[in-house]
Nucleic acid binder design. Structure first.
Length: 848
RNA sequence: GCCGGAGUGGCGGAAUUGGCAGACGCGCUGGACUCAAAAUCCAGUGAACCGCGAGGUUCGUGUCGGUUCGACCCCGACCUUCGGCACCA
């Protein structure tokens, strides 16, 4: 049987896809006695066809999973769908297709595409978050959190997206805009469900040391910034003319307490109404509040907005020196941060300085860089220095002063050391239909009652009017809302908000360990075996969303004793985005290349090869059509080379070849190499093969540099071509050709699945190439025997020579000094020094 | 403003521990094959200068300094750019 002369990717890929499906070759699970490895890519929202970013994500994971599997690991490499969420619901409003139907259709499309790209998933173990057998357990987790006191309903100023008609968590607000639709977010005071992630702020921070090795620094930095820890003190300021009211403030600079000349409440602060008595002031405050409430969060958050405010007519007492301090309100003080009130120190805080200058409030210097008083400050000094005008603390360094003042406050019950976090509690309720219902019932008699576990899941009703009205669509669904109280059996109503989809995605990786178990959310035995995830892969845009929530979830479960590990993802790799023309691919811009266009035209192998070769996996890449052509060209080149090599053996089957070696060509070639029986080009080829195995293995598993792994394979192919061109057929070492060709196919196989398999089978192998163990390399063969020694004079390259490895320094020196080119630069000059780095270079230092 | 990345040919990018800058690919140029073209194969390809030529010299990794026998790599200052946080007290 003759091998096909031409590479026909679509033909072989379609054929093999069917074959693999029949042989169930997609799963990489082996045996529980093997070491386990859990490779996980962030699961997608099923939007129909996967986009190029998805493809990049899954291809990277696939290569790692496949190589490790071939190295003897038992691999969990699952896929699922994060299928609750707004797009399906918005589509339903737009064109009437029920989210359930459109979701199923999208999942089908997506699954088909993933199979077409050859990703090695256990497709039978999919997790679909919008299925009741999944969201039942999402609700179960809610109840767990509720019982642990970590889920609470509270009134708070929350982010409202008017376009999505729902509230959003802080993490979903990106510079004042909705993460999903980019419309401006407003503040509304509403009663909402929160998970108390703030209880875990410090733990989320501390446990990052467990991630330092496996997570990129920039991701940890994003999380650190987001958690926003700052140390300082809470200081209580008593309200003047009042016995019992005192207002705490948070400050990072207790050492500046003597410099307080005014005091500010956030305009929304609830105390304002209580303490302002004078009608004059009430009117003025009303005016200011009006102006401020007219400013959007984006405006108010922007750097250069003018500071405005007014005096309230009331005073507080500075606890340190007993001075009366006027209370103002001002737009630059935020209710959400700290206590919603600040002590203003205009001499040492630029914002306070600007405000004080505008309204003629005194500025009192209490920290001096040189210990002296300065007449007029032109700006706030916020650096360290020496405390002045600070009573008994004067003369102390500001650094020590922070501690001393705090201790003094603590001793006198006026305040305490305090750590403040920017992190807010996680708002999880949403006023939308397509999510997991929150399992809570409101009884007229018993009040708030959790749904008993045995009644889960609280099913989403199917027939519903999706049009958003500011309340959940479920609110208008009587048969859903009206229920009986689980406690007293009396009339009761269900909670109608659904959960943020980030709740669903905070535990899906646990579900993958036992996806079909209907008794528990996850089987502990399986989770103990598989978790934590060894390698997590996905977009960095989730650094301060999904990746924080999932870490929080795991810590809660750890505290509850349900799991034995503190972090869900040991290693995390953020892949870069795929751009086109320097811009993010997006439907609205119309600059989209879909993976399907590429695999339909060039084949999945070309897509896979190109997307890995185009650049380092963690940096953004720009799509290039000529780059795709190049990848395709390379595969054609491989095809022709291998077909020729197979034919060389006199038959399309290696096994029938007339070579002198039949059983273990790898070993025989090694012997020939070591016994010096190969020609120099053959030695080079053999060495190149072993070097390539080494490089490809390390690049994939250690460095995550798929682009350089592929370029190494290209170099091997180039050398194989050289051998093919330069040596006449009768003189070729067929055993060597066979050995190098087969290893080449194995090295290619995790990248370009189909072509590797097709040629492998054509060469007469019975077993799939994807079940063949990953090759080892021989150190002795991989090692170069000659190295280029560089001759430098004063650090400049002047000559080079190839010498055997391990040539002693004196000999290198002799060669260097006898080099004509070196002599040109040393003649007539005094040689001061000679530095020899064995196997690398010699540097001769001369004086002019 | 604070924190964290990044900056290398015409382009995407290599250089793994301070030791040959530009691997590999794209593009381009030339050659082979062809009636011709495509495809393919081979060779060349950082810049400037010198030489008829073989060859040679100088410059060159954002900028300016420093450390070192030697710096894309380490240190200092700055510029540009991307990302995170941001009237955060």
């Amino acid at each position: 049987m003759a091998v096909h002369k031409f590479y026909k990717p679509r033909e072989i890929e379609e054929k093999l896809t069917k074959k693999w499906e029949k042989e169930k070759i997609y799963s990489l699970k082996s045996d529980k006695n093997d070491p386990k490895y859990y490779v996980l890519e962030m699961f997608p929202y099923p939007s129909g066809e996967p986009h190029m970013g998805h493809a990049r994500n899954y291809i990277i994971g696939d290569v790692i999973a496949r190589v490790l599997s071939r190295k003897g690991y038992n691999i969990l490499h699952p896929i699922g769908f994060d299928s609750f969420g707004l797009p399906a619901e918005n589509a339903a409003i737009r064109d009437g297709m029920h989210p359930k139907e459109s979701t199923i259709a999208s999942i089908d499309k997506m699954r088909k595409a993933l199979k077409r790209m050859g990703i090695s998933y256990d497709f039978g173990d999919e997790v679909i978050t919008s299925n009741p057998d999944y969201y039942k357990w999402t609700q179960w987790f809610f109840l767990l959190f509720y019982r642990m006191g970590l889920a609470e309903k509270k009134e708070a100023a929350v982010n409202w997206c008017n376009s999505c008609q729902t509230v959003l968590a802080n993490e979903q607000v990106i510079s004042g805009r909705c993460e999903r639709c980019e419309s401006p977010v407003e503040k509304r005071v509403l009663s909402q469900w929160f998970f108390k992630i703030t209880d875990y702020a410090q733990r989320l921070l501390d446990d990052m040391k467990l991630l330092e090795k496996g997570w990129p620094e920039r991701v940890l930095t994003i999380q650190r910034n987001w958690i926003g820890r700052s140390e300082g003190a809470v200081v209580d300021f008593k309200l003047d003319d009042s016995e019992d009211i005192s207002i705490p403030v948070f400050t990072t600079r207790p050492d500046t307490l003597f410099g307080v000349t005014f005091f500010i409440l956030a305009p929304e602060h609830p105390l304002i109404d209580k303490i302002v008595v004078d009608e004059e002031y009430k009117k003025e405050i009303g005016k200011i509040k009006n102006i401020i409430s007219g400013q959007s969060d984006i405006e108010r958050g922007s750097a250069e907005i003018e500071k405005i405010g007014c005096f309230t007519g009331r005073y507080v007492i500075n606890p340190l020196n007993g001075q009366k301090v006027p209370i103002w309100i001002a737009n630059y003080v935020l209710l959400e941060y700290g206590t919603g009130a600040i002590m203003a120190v205009p001499a040492h805080d630029q914002r306070d300085f600007e405000f004080a200058s505008k309204y003629g409030i005194p500025i009192k210097e209490v920290i001096s860089p040189d210990g002296k008083n300065h007449q007029k400050l032109s700006a706030a000094y916020d650096g360290e220095g020496i405390m002045i005008n600070s009573g008994k603390f004067s003369g102390t360094s500001s650094e020590k002063g922070k501690k001393d003042v705090t201790s003094y406050l603590e001793e006198n019950n006026m305040g305490k050391f305090y750590v403040n976090y920017k992190l807010r509690d996680w708002l999880i309720s949403r006023q939308r239909y397509w999510g997991a219902p929150i399992p809570i019932i409101y009884c007229e008699k018993c009040g708030m009652v959790p749904v008993p576990e045995e009644d889960l899941p609280v099913l989403l009703p199917y027939d519903i009017d999706f049009r958003p009205k500011g309340l959940s669509p479920l609110f208008y669904c009587d048969e859903f809302v009206n229920t009986a109280c689980p406690g007293c059996g009396g009339k009761a109503k269900r909670e109608t908000d659904t959960m943020d989809t980030f709740v669903c995605s905070s535990w899906y990786f646990l579900r993958y360990c036992s996806p079909h178990n209907d008794k528990v959310a996850f089987d502990s035995k399986e989770v103990d075996y598989w978790m934590p995830v060894d390698q997590y892969i996905g977009g960095i845009e989730h650094a301060a969303m999904h990746l924080i929530y999932a870490r929080f979830f795991i810590k809660v479960l750890y505290d509850k004793g349900l799991i034995k590990f503190k972090e869900p993802f040991i290693k995390y790799f953020p892949h870069g985005v795929v751009n086109l023309g320097g811009q993010k691919m997006s439907k609205s811009k119309g600059n989209i290349v879909n993976p399907s266009e590429i695999y339909n035209r060039y084949g999945a192998d070309t897509l896979r090869l190109y997307i890995l070769f185009v650049g380092p996996a963690d940096s953004p890449v720009d799509w290039s059509d000529s780059g795709v052509e190049g990848a395709s060209r390379f595969l054609n080149r491989v095809w022709r080379l291998v077909v020729k090599n197979i034919e060389l053996a006199g038959s399309s089957k290696w096994a029938n070849s007339k070579t002198k070696v039949l059983k273990d060509p790898g070993k025989d070639i090694k012997d020939e190499f070591k016994n010096g029986k190969l020609s120099s080009l053959e030695r080079e080829l053999c060495r190149k093969l072993h070097q390539t195995i080494k490089k490809v293995t390390e690049d994939i598993l250690v460095r995550f540099n798929f682009n350089t792994a592929i370029s190494a394979i290209m170099e091997l192919v180039n050398l194989m071509y050289k051998y093919q061109e330069e040596v006449t057929a009768s003189k070729k070492n067929v055993a060597l050709v066979k050995e190098v060709t087969e290893k080449l196919l194995i090295l290619l196989s995790p990248f370009t699945l189909f072509i590797a398999e097709e040629l492998w089978l054509e060469a007469g192998n019975e077993r799939s190439i994807h079940k063949v163990p990953w090759p080892d390399y021989d150190h002795e063969i991989a090692r170069e025997e000659l190295v280029t020694i560089v001759f430098q004079v004063n650090g400049k390259l002047r000559d080079r020579i190839d010498l055997p490895i391990g040539t002693p320094p004196e000999e290198i020196e002799r060669y260097a000094l006898s080099s004509r080119k070196v002599k040109n630069f040393t003649q007539g000059k005094e040689i001061v020094k000679k530095i020899v780095v064995p196997n690398k270079l010699i540097n001769i230092v001369v004086k002019n």
